[in-house]
Simulated assay, not measured.
Amino acid sequence: MSLVELARYASPIDAELDRQRLDGAMIDAVLFDAGMSSVYPAAGLVEIRLMVLDDDLELARETLGLSSAAGAPPGRG
C-alpha cells in the first residue's frame, strides 16, 4: 500500500475540511505541504495535497464527490 494524491488545495481550510470528511468516513488521509501555506501565504504558490492509501482512493473520491481524475473538489482549489 502506498499513498496517492486525491486532491490539491490552495486553501488550508478547505484541505482540512475534506480531510475531516474522509476521517468521518473512516478513510485515513494526510495533508502534505499544509505547513508551507504559512511560509508562502500567497495563493497558488504552494498547493496542499490530500493523500490517501491507494486502496482507499475510489471510496475517497466518492466520499468527496470527485471524478475519477485527481483534482480539486468542485468549487475549491
Results as ranks from 00 to 15, higher is better:
1 M>G: 08
3 L>R: 13
4 V>N: 10
5 E>M: 14
6 L>K: 05
8 R>A: 09
8 R>I: 06
9 Y>M: 03
10 A>M: 03
12 P>N: 06
12 P>T: 08
12 P>L: 02
13 I>R: 12
15 A>R: 09
16 E>W: 08
17 L>M: 12
17 L>V: 15
17 L>I: 15
18 D>N: 15
18 D>F: 04
18 D>K: 11
19 R>T: 00
19 R>I: 06
20 Q>Y: 09
21 R>L: 12
23 D>F: 05
23 D>P: 02
24 G>E: 04
24 G>A: 10
24 G>W: 01
25 A>E: 12
26 M>K: 11
26 M>P: 00
27 I>P: 04
27 I>R: 04
28 D>Q: 13
29 A>D: 06
30 V>P: 01
30 V>N: 00
31 L>E: 07
31 L>T: 06
32 F>T: 08
32 F>V: 09
32 F>L: 10
33 D>Y: 08
33 D>N: 12
34 A>C: 03
35 G>Y: 04
35 G>S: 11
36 M>D: 14
36 M>E: 15
36 M>T: 08
37 S>D: 07
37 S>Q: 12
39 V>Y: 13
39 V>W: 12
40 Y>V: 08
42 A>G: 02
43 A>N: 04
43 A>P: 10
44 G>M: 00
44 G>P: 07
46 V>I: 15
47 E>H: 07
48 I>K: 10
48 I>V: 14
48 I>D: 04
49 R>S: 14
51 M>F: 04
51 M>A: 08
51 M>R: 11
52 V>K: 00
52 V>Q: 05
52 V>H: 00
52 V>S: 03
55 D>I: 06
55 D>G: 02
56 D>M: 03
56 D>T: 04
57 L>H: 05
57 L>G: 06
57 L>N: 07
60 A>T: 03
62 E>C: 04
63 T>S: 12
63 T>I: 05
63 T>A: 11
64 L>D: 09
65 G>Y: 07
65 G>C: 01
66 L>D: 12
66 L>N: 05
66 L>S: 07
66 L>I: 10
67 S>Q: 13
67 S>E: 15
68 S>R: 15
70 A>R: 15
74 P>Y: 08
75 G>H: 09
76 R>G: 03
77 G>F: 05
